[in-house]
């Protein structure tokens, strides 16, 4: 019996006018946007927390994290729940996207290395450029995009319970 070749699948989604892809292995589920509770004094990329069946899950605005204007919530806005490893544990994080498009197969040879510049994105955020019917989409490197250490540091430093400092 021949083992089926593991064909990586990707979810494409839109942020503003751009399309990004994320390996589907990281994704737990996609839910409608809603029920968000803001956490005061957090940087703008940390939109707040939601109740995901009894667990409190932080929600991140990827657009802000990418240095774009904050996402405005529309009819097709979704929260993509992804799993991120931190230490020995897996943490759930929500990511706000403007719309999810489709799930597609991308063989490794269809992913080009990231360009030196031009994507308007921090280089380590890009795993590669996926070629889909003649267009390129940015395949995100989730471990850098949602690095808990980096984000927690930003969250910690932005707290301003010191009105004078």
């Amino acid at each position: 019996m021949v083992e089926p070749v593991e064909q990586p699948q990707y979810l494409t989604f839109r942020l503003g006018t751009e399309t990004y892809a994320l390996e589907i292995l990281h994704i737990k589920e996609i839910i409608e946007y809603g029920g968000l509770t803001e956490v005061p004094l957090m940087p703008r990329f940390l939109r707040g927390v939601i109740n995901l069946r009894g667990a409190v899950v932080p929600v991140i605005d990827l657009a802000v994290r990418f240095g774009r204007p904050a996402t405005t919530i529309g009819k097709r806005s979704c929260i993509v729940i992804v799993e991120v490893q931190y230490g020995d544990d897996w943490h759930d994080l929500g990511v706000i996207v403007d719309a999810v498009d489709e799930v597609l197969d991308l063989p490794p040879e269809a992913i080009e290395p990231a360009p030196a510049f031009g994507a308007q994105l921090r280089a380590e955020f890009i795993r590669g450029m996926g070629k889909i019917s003649g267009r390129f989409v940015i395949v995100l490197a989730l471990e850098h995009v949602l690095s808990i250490d980096e984000m927690a540091e930003l969250a910690g430093s932005s707290e301003s319970l010191h009105p004078e400092s």
Binding site: G35, T37, V39, P40, L41, M42, L46, G48, V49, I50, N51, G54, A55, V56, P58, Y86, H91, L93, I148, M151, A152, E153, A155, G156, S157, E159, L161
Partner: peptide, 27 residues
């Protein structure tokens, strides 16, 4: 009490979060 998680470890003035009867999260 639901801990806010690693991402909020630097947060001050909040001891955690909880889920209200309405399903919303309160701090």
């Amino acid at each position: 009490i639901k801990p806010l998680g690693q991402l909020f470890r630097g947060v001050r003035g909040l001891a955690g979060s909880t889920i209200l009867g309405s399903g919303a999260v309160a701090l």
